[in-house]
Design a protein around this nucleic acid. Structure first.
Lengths: 223, 223
DNA sequence: GTCTATAGCAGGATAGAC
DNA sequence: GTCTATCCTGCTATAGAC
């Protein structure tokens, strides 16, 4: 009742735009930009073909809007989860940094299906970058990388040169991001089911491997 | 002169098929399957539109043939480079395994442009797997993974359980494959040029990190 | 804001001459 | 084995009624 004043045409069903974004994201993630048609999206969103052009101008801009309004906020949730988890840890140690990062990315605030979509979308951009990649790189990847650099520098018990630090940061990101990407294939190659137990074990492994590499193996893990 | 006997129509220019495969691979790698048209491929191969259907039946089959006749043999060269380099090392140590693997994948028998194409093609399949991924998984990834498991088991100085071993193998693969994928972005995020010096440093880093994780840092590297 | 209808074009694929 | 010519489907995008 409050906002009637400036809308004489009260935008009956403002949900169409949202439904399009939701369905577009699912389809773009599963099949990639070029393999999805606007018809397919509007059919899934149970609206008319013309709605995409009305709300987003064209298909390319719908794709970008999926990243802007869906992907980026979700990435922020993951990033925040990492930061608060690390802050809650009190002192910053290398172990705490990697633990918080792995936890946030592999078991953080996202549901399993959200996480899958999230990583499929970015995988597509890694394989064939579009304008969306610039968006993601500037607003998510670069800040994450810089944060990780700062945290690692603060956490390492000795001085470390910049290039060395950067390589370490990349290696840790490699572990975290790659395991998310490869998750469907770990089962395929090993035969292990990807259940919660394996997920927890995976996070522990990433921490151990990042801290001590293969040398980490002889040690036992507290449960 | 030797083979005239059984070809009365001597297949004037049997190179068309090859040219199509070459150009198709470049375009598929750069833009992805759906973003490339058959017209675009035949134009690049300076042949007629109908040639693709004549030689390969349809577009999808041309794509598969690119993997069969171009990607798989190249992957074999890399795999062989890894095996012979490791064998030449004499005794199998964890360090030798990782060193040989990283060397083969990041600086092995492929030229830089070959390697880039190679990894762009497989990245596309990782993001949105098609029939080609089954091919690659069965004929390349699974054997590579099994080899790595065997080598690591032989190289580790103590007994190690299967799941632990598999996670370590994945972690090492993560480092090697991820750095190839992320190479274009390392420069972007760090500002360092990706020259031969950085490449060599990267290989050393992967070995160190895989062996000792972050704990590897204080050590100096022999040149 | 949502719909129908359609323009306009690019795509994969095929027939048939050479 | 390579070409020209063409079919026809499916696509994005727009115009205009409601």
């Amino acid at each position: 009742m409050v906002e009637n004043k400036r809308k004489l045409t009260p935008a009956k069903n403002g949900q169409t735009r949202d439904r399009i974004l939701d369905e577009a994201e699912v389809l773009f993630a599963r099949k990639g930009y070029h393999a999805v048609s606007v018809r397919e999206i509007t059919a899934a969103a149970t609206c008319n073909l013309a709605a995409v052009n009305y709300h987003f101008g064209n298909k390319q801009n719908l794709y970008l809007e999926v990243f802007r309004s869906r992907w980026l906020p979700r990435a922020s949730r993951v990033h925040n989860s990492f930061r608060t988890s690390l802050a809650a840890n009190g002192t910053i140690t290398p172990s705490a940094v990697v633990q918080s990062l792995a936890q946030a990315f592999l078991d953080g605030p996202l549901t399993d299906t959200e996480r899958k979509r999230h990583h499929q979308l970015i995988s597509g951009e890694l394989a064939q970058p579009t304008e969306a990649f610039d968006l993601v790189a500037d607003q998510v990847l670069q800040p994450l990388f810089n944060n990780l650099l700062d945290d690692l520098r603060a956490a390492m018990p000795y001085e470390i040169e910049n290039e060395q630090l950067a390589l370490n940061a990349f290696s840790i990101l490699a572990m975290v991001l790659y395991f998310n990407l490869a998750k469907p294939f770990i089962s395929r190659f090993t035969g292990y089911a990807f259940d919660d137990k394996l997920k927890a074990r995976l996070i522990n492994h990433i921490v151990d491997f990042s801290l001590n590499g293969l040398a980490a193996n002889p040690k036992e893990h507290g449960k």
